[in-house]
Each structure stands twice: as structure tokens, then as C-alpha cells.
Design a protein around this nucleic acid. Structure first.
Length: 577
RNA sequence: GGCCCAGUAGCUCAGUUGGAUAGAGCGCUUGCCUCCGGAGCAAGAGGUCGCAGGUUCGAAUCCUGCCUGGGUCACCA
């Protein structure tokens, strides 16, 4: 519909340009549904764009375009000039109603496109190291990444979802030592550090209490799960592990168990990955050395203070960074470089890294370095998201990673369920903080809880269908139903809104911004729910068979869009609630 | 202090490749209505789009400076 109009308008513009002796190309025209209904079905800014180029006042140009446009092959009823030179176009007769059938016939593919042309896209997200349960920040990232992947999938991209993790390094060592400390404490061979000292990083820490050594690491993981893992080891092995190093069996057991739990959380969230990549791979296959050697060959590496440095300043960055510590251990940066190089080696056309704001500083170094190594850094994108705060009872819930008093994804999932969790996490744009209102999320009233509001709108289309069947009324045939009787203003408004879906999907996919889909679905539901509710002004099921069929067709269109949209967000589209 | 993100209605937020009178939900006021499924419909109040300049036919949107909140500035990941 919109595209046919676009073509017609572009032809007019081309002709005008030719008349003026301008052989240049036709500029991008904006054609959109105006906010004001009395501005017609579509507004076009062509005259404003051309004013300077043609050296004529915009309103005059608009007149010329309108005259040339005519009825554009039967789809345009009127085109009038308004304001500074907008062209307001009204579509002919039942053009909108005719388009509704197309929505229903496209079904689960309505809104899908070949925008990506089959491009191979990798989306890397979550990528949390197995040091503890997923936090709300991870949860938000899981949902955002997954929704971006779903959007890309739906718009003609070939998507690989990937989780990158690291089970070596300092963090995991500290985890192992934390577990061992709790293990020794539970066996009565060590004393737990004083709670007030744990809570305050500055507070001094005794070496021993009542003759028992305090072995818990200063920067150890304080979460309850650490003690639980230790308790499991006590139950299974008794005191047999007291001489094991924290970095050995303790670390391995802890990591394996935590990783299993992370996977279970992701499954509960409805998030699945195609590939898990372990940092260790790059240690073992020699790519760290290769990356280092290649950087060295380009004179981007130097040795200082016993460490190996990346000469990032010569790549235009603010400071140099350490690649290999004086201990001989690589920093996070070097394997990350090797990893991104590996992404290129695997041939992805686009590489999307979803990361929390705390990682943002890292990204420029990775991008600059792989660019220097000959990769096309322009193919790597960063989707950054801010953190999540929790509000409960109108009060912000204090969270502290250090004290392990943060709320986990598991806990919140248990309270609100995966659908609500996902909707809340994806309904705000990724940058900018997200305030998760637990009370609203737990609200069972469908009118108040936006996730239920959308799902309920979908369920209602089935409710009406059930009612119709009870009354012996068949659903209309998508291939042939006649929507022409839909003449009410709110019906046209609904149809127009449904037809926006493909544009919304395409824009959200291209911008990597799934929140647009959530917002849009809320709008569709916001039209449909009142429409259904107001059974005085218009009942779907009435004595008028043709009107009933048309309204049932509208219900099918709404169902199609809501179902497809909910699928893009990873929410269930229930038939009843 | 440098860099990044944010600042839009009472609250939570859309809108930011420059377009007409800046929107939604919740909350609030008034009137009507009692519905396929848990109420709905109509009208209304509520805004210096953080502040100040600049760019131009036109700025919430672009540029500069400043204010406020958060993040980040490791031989952590």
C-alpha cells in the first residue's frame, strides 16, 4: 500500500526534476501516517525536500506534485497541500479494508522480510562467567540479545546466537578459593571473617579468630550459593578435600555446578544458544600467540615493566593496555581479540556484541586492534545496555554485588514468570536505566500489567472465535473474506495500525532496538481491547452476517499481528488466560 | 578530572537519519454506559522537551558550553 504510493510519488518527483533540467537522482522521500487523522492517510515531505534544489517555494512544488499524482492508478482519492508544503494523501474507497485480507493470508509470515538478504549475523550476548547466578543485568541482556536475534531471523538474516565464557583466570580462581574457605569453615578448620569486615572493603581483617585461621579471600564471592556448594562437598567427601588447592577440585566443581544453573536459568527464560565458546579454546589452539605475533609484526606491541603492552595510542586511543601481565598470564583483552578474530574467520557478515555499560570501555580497544589486524571493524557492532534497578513497594531495592545481596534472575522469574520478565526487560530502550517495578510485574489484573494486557488482547481473539463457534458462526475464509463493511473510525484505525507492523519490525531489526516492538504491541492491544470491550457501540457477533464476517476477519488480523509480535519478543501467545 | 549513557506530563516511559498543534500507559477531574471476558466510552486538567546560546524555511531531534543523575577510567573480567 505504502510502497505503491511511494512509487507513484517518486515518479512524479522524477518528472518534476526532469522538467527543471535536473538529472540528479530522486531524494529519499518520507511517507508516513500523520499524527493528526484529518491530515489524511499519508503525508509526504517531497516538496520541502525539493524546495532548495528547485529554487521554488515548497507549496508550489507540492501543487505540481499533486496535479501530476492524480489518482495514482486508482489508489488515491485526494492529495492536498497543507502547512509549509506537506502533501496529504487520502486513499481511495476501501483500500485499507482490502489490505486487511493480506495480513491474515500472510499469517505467521506477516511482517517478515528479506531485508537481510540471508546475511550471516552473529549475536553474542550474556557471556557471563560462571562465578555465580545470573543477575538482573544479565537477565536484561539475555532478553535483549535474544529479541534482537529473533528480529534478525524474521527479517532475512541467518543468525548465530553465541555465549562466550571464561573458566580460567583470576575470577574463577577466587571462586575456587571462596568455596574452599567455606568448606574449611564448615568443617571447623577455619573461621569465617567478621560480617562487618566482609561488608566493608576497607575494614581490616584478622588472620585468625579463636585460634582458627581466616582463609576466606578478601575479594571472595560472598553469595549463599558458595556455602551451598561447599556443604555439598562436605556431605559427599567429608574432610577428604582439605589438602586440595582451591584452584583445583573446588574450582572445577563450583564452576560446573554454577554453569549448569546458568543454563537452567536461560532455559527458563526461553533463551537458547547455538554456540558456546570457551576462552580456553584460544589458549589451546595457539591463537593467542598468533594474535600477539601479528600485532608485534605491525609494531603494535611492546614490552615494559615485565608486561606486554598493546600500543593502542598509535591506533588513536587514549592509553595503552596490557595484553600479557608480568605474571605471564594474558589479560582479558588478548583472548577477546583472538575471539573477535575468530568471529571474522568464521565468515560472519555482521558481528553484534551485546554488552552491559560496565564493559563499554573495552570495546574500542577490541575494535581498533582487530581493525589493525586487517579485519573490517565496521562489521562489528556494539549494543550497549544500562543496568536494572528494582522497585518494590515504591522503594528502590538496594543491590550490592560485593555483599551478594543482589536479586537473581531465578528469584525474579519465580515471582513474575518468564513472559512478564521478558516483556519488562525489553520494553525500554537498551541504553538508559531500566526500573523494574516488581509490584506492577506481579499485578494479575490484565489492565494494569502491560505484558498481560498484550497477551490478553491476543487471547480475546480466540475468545471471540469460541463464542462464534458456539453460535454456529464460522470464521471467515482468509482467502476471500470481505472487510469492506468495516467502516467505523476505530476499525480503520485498527487496520492502519496492523499494517504498520512490517515497518515497525524492519526498523526495530535495523536499529537493533526490540523495544519498539513491545511499544507497538501495547498500541495494538490498546486499540483492540477497548474495541472488544465496548459491546454497546459495536459487537463483533451480530445479526448482520456480512458485518460479523468482516469483524471476525479483523479479529484474525489482530491475532496475526499480536501472535507474530509476541513471538518476536519470546512471549507466549495464549488462546485463553 | 577524561570518556560513555541518560535528563520529555504527578509517576514509568515512547518519540532523537531535522518536519505540521510533542505522545502512550498509570494516576487525577467530569459526564455517560453496564458490555463477546475481568468494565467501557466521551471530554478535561497536567509540558520553559535539564539550562543557555548557535545552525535554518523549520530543532525534543544537529553543533557548542554548562547543570544534574548513573556508569567507567586495572598487569579484574
Amino acid at each position: 500500500m505504502k510502497e505503491r504510493l511511494r512509487k507513484a510519488l517518486e515518479d512524479c518527483v522524477r518528472a518534476l526534476l526532469a522538467e527543471a533540467g535536473d538529472a540528479g537522482s530522486v531524494p529519499a522521500l518520507q511517507i508516513e501516517a500523520p499524527r493528526q487523522a484529518d491530515h489524511g492517510d499519508f503525508a509526504c515531505n517531497a516538496a520541502l525536500v525539493l524546495a532548495k534544489r528547485l529554487g521554488r517555494p515548497p507549496r508550489q512544488i507540492a501543487e505540481a506534485i499533486a496535479a501530476r499524482l492524480g489518482d495514482a492508478g486508482g489508489i488515491v482519492a485526494s492529495a492536498e497541500v497543507a502547512g509549509p508544503g506537506f502533501l496529504n494523501v487520502r486513499l481511495a474507497g476501501d483500500a485499507w479494508q482490502r489490505a486487511l485480507g493480506g495480513v491474515v493470508r500472510a499469517g505467521a509470515r506477516f511482517g517478515a522480510s528479506d531485508l537481510g538478504g540471508g546475511a550471516q549475523v552473529q549475536v553474542e550476548f550474556v557471556s557471563a562467567n560462571p562465578t555465580g547466578p545470573l543477575t538482573l543485568g544479565h537477565g536484561r541482556q539475555a532478553v535483549i540479545g535474544d529479541c534482537i536475534a529473533r528480529l534478525l531471523d524474521f527479517t532475512g538474516h541467518s543468525v548465530t546466537r553465541e555465549y562466550y565464557f571464561n573458566d580460567g583466570g583470576r575470577q574463577m580462581r577466587v571462586l575456587g578459593e571462596s568455596v574452599k574457605a567455606r568448606y574449611l569453615e564448615q568443617l571447623g578448620r577455619a573461621a569465617p571473617p567478621p560480617l562487618d569486615a566482609l561488608a566493608d572493603a576497607e575494614r581490616p581483617w584478622p588472620d585468625a579468630i579463636d585460634g582458627l585461621p581466616v582463609v576466606f579471600p578478601r575479594d571472595g564471592y560472598q553469595g549463599e550459593y558458595v556455602a551451598e556448594i561447599a556443604a555439598g562437598l562436605v556431605a559427599e567427601h567429608g574432610a577428604a578435600l582439605v589438602d586440595e588447592p582451591g584452584d583445583g577440585a573446588f574450582r572445577e566443581v563450583a564452576q560446573a555446578r554454577i554453569f549448569r544453573e546458568i543454563e537452567a536459568t536461560l532455559v527458563a527464560l526461553g533463551v537458547r544458544f547455538d554456540v558456546y565458546t570457551n576462552e580456553k579454546t584460544f589458549y589451546e589452539d595457539g591463537s593467542l600467540e598468533r594474535a600477539l605475533a601479528d600485532l608485534r609484526a605491525k609494531d603494535l606491541v611492546y614490552d615494559a615493566d615485565g608486561a606486554v603492552w598493546l600500543r593502542a595510542t598509535s591506533l588513536g586511543l587514549e592509553r595503552d593496555r596490557v595484553l600479557v601481565k608480568s605474571s605471564g598470564e594474558p589479560t582479558y583483552l588478548l583472548p577477546d581479540l583472538a575471539y573477535h578474530r575468530d568471529k571474522f574467520r568464521r565468515g560472519f557478515d555482521r558481528i553484534i556484541d551485546v554488552q552491559g555499560a560496565d564493559h563499554i570501555e573495552q570495546f574500542p580497544f577490541v575494535r581498533a586492534a582487530i581493525g589493525a589486524l586487517g579485519c573490517d571493524a565496521g562489521r562489528v557492532e556494539l549494543v550497549m545496555h544500562q543496568f536494572v534497578t528494582l522497585t518494590r513497594g515504591g522503594q528502590q531495592v538496594k543491590q550490592s554485588t560485593r555483599r551478594a545481596t543482589y536479586v537473581t534472575v531465578d528469584e525474579l522469574l519465580e515471582e513474575v514468570g518468564a513472559d512478564v520478565f521478558r516483556f519488562f526487560m525489553v520494553q525500554r530502550k537498551a541504553d538508559g536505566h531500566l526500573d523494574f517495578d516488581v509490584d506492577l510485574a506481579k499485578e494479575q489484573d490484565w489492565k494494569k500489567n502491560p505484558a498481560y494486557y498484550v497477551q490478553y488482547a491476543h487471547a480475546r481473539t480466540h475468545g471471540i472465535e469460541r463464542k462464534a463457534r458456539e453460535q454456529g458462526v464460522a470464521m471467515p475464509d482468509p482467502a476471500s473474506f470481505d472487510a469492506a463493511p468495516l467502516a467505523l473510525e476505530e476499525e480503520l484505525e485498527l487496520i492502519k495500525k496492523l499494517l504498520e507492523f512490517p515497518d515497525v519490525v524492519a526498523a526495530a531489526a535495523q536499529a537493533r532496538e526490540p523495544h519498539h516492538v513491545a511499544y507497538y504491541l501495547r498500541e495494538v492491544a490498546g486499540l483492540w481491547n477497548p474495541y472488544v470491550q465496548d459491546g454497546v457501540r459495536h459487537r463483533v457477533l451480530s445479526e448482520d452476517a456480512a458485518l460479523t464476517a468482516a469483524r471476525l476477519g479483523l479479529a484474525l488480523g489482530v491475532r496475526t499481528v499480536l501472535a507474530n509480535g509476541l513471538a518476536l519478543l519470546g512471549l507466549a501467545a495464549p488462546e485463553r488466560m
